[in-house]
């Protein structure tokens, strides 16, 4: 393609848009490597590279990892593998929580959406259209309006299970630490189940559209060869539907990783041990004395994994989203 005048203009416009979309992320990364003196410098500095005579001198750049140190807070501890232990709650508690919530929700959603999407694509039964439209309508319902009831459900579940824990504690079946951790795991699992129910409807539709694209003849050939419905599903259809399942996994992954309000309100505000990374970052600003390079470092640490996942799998994202929105 030749670079006509119109295309030159279009390229410039596209580069400008890219700049607007990327620059805030980039400058947050730069901010996270500044020291306090440069953070509060007036007028504000993009790069901490000014000298008394020059605005920008590459050799004068002052980059520090102070922000990350404050988030990670490594402490010397000869008992651990590398001689350090990590004291920062974002790293030692909140990020592992997020990883657990994210991976387990994405796996369960993908599995259940795969099964349901297959049925919707291949079987016919009374009430099917109604159920499908219902599920499509539910994709627009936010977590927000159900939060009060879900909160109440979790409280009820805690009340229901409390006598068991008390009995175990009274009879010394488990130590107190074990019981605390069991109570926490109960809440974590409940939160994952809430996420599964919330992210399922969208994934069902994504996966169904991928199943629809697989020719029925392949299955029929399998039946002729004597396969059972179960074998046809696991050995013929599932491998072909893999791109759809991967898309469901990734979209759920990003959604749960970034979820804030349910994690914060249902479990996180009362129990810090259950907070995910986003709630952890929000928690940092609870006291207004937070240094900006520290907040920026926390933001970078929390957004980095999900940005990397996206960059490596972007084609799947684009396919799934245009598939679901324009065609579906």
């Amino acid at each position: 393609m030749t670079l006509s005048k119109g295309n030159l203009f279009a390229n410039l416009a596209a580069i400008l848009v890219c700049f607007i979309m990327i620059f805030p992320v980039f400058s947050t990364i730069v901010l996270s490597f500044k020291q306090q003196a440069d953070v509060s410098h007036e007028p504000p500095l993009l790069f901490p590279c000014n000298t008394e005579t020059e605005d920008f001198n590459l050799t004068a750049c002052r980059f520090f990892v102070e922000g990350y140190e404050r988030i990670i807070s490594p402490k010397e501890d000869p008992d651990t593998l590398f001689g350090y232990k990590i004291d920062g709650r974002i790293i030692n508690t909140y990020l592992p929580n997020t990883v657990f919530y994210t991976i387990s929700t994405a796996l369960l959603v993908t599995m259940f959406a795969g099964l349901a999407g297959y049925v919707f694509s291949r079987y016919d039964f009374p009430g099917k259209h109604l159920i499908m439209i219902g599920i499509l309508a539910i994709t627009g319902i936010p977590l927000l309006t159900n939060l009060l009831a879900l909160f109440q459900l979790v409280v009820d579940a805690r009340k229901f299970s409390a006598p068991f824990y008390e009995a175990w504690q009274a009879s010394d079946t488990f130590s107190e630490d074990t019981i605390t951790s069991m109570r926490n795991w109960q809440d974590r699992i409940l939160l994952v189940m809430i996420y599964v129910g919330f992210f399922l409807p969208f994934s069902v539709w994504i996966v169904k559209s991928f199943f629809d694209a697989i020719p029925l003849e392949l299955e029929e050939a399998a039946y002729i060869d004597g396969a059972s419905p179960y074998q046809a599903l696991t050995q013929i259809i599932t491998p072909l539907a893999m791109p759809g399942l991967v898309a469901s996994f990734l979209l759920t992954f990003v959604g749960v990783w970034n979820e804030f309000i349910a994690n914060y309100l249902i479990v996180g505000s009362s129990k810090p041990a259950l907070r995910g990374a986003i709630v952890g970052v929000y928690d940092l600003t609870g006291n207004n004395l937070i240094n900006y390079q520290v907040l920026a470092a926390a933001c970078v640490l929390v957004m980095l994994p999900v940005v990397l996942v996206f960059l490596f799998t972007r084609r799947t994202f684009f396919n799934a989203m245009t598939e679901g929105a324009v065609k579906g």
Partner: peptide
Amino acid sequence: IFIPWVLSDVI
């Protein structure tokens, strides 16, 4: 252009 979409609202 797509990178902001994968970031959390809070971030």
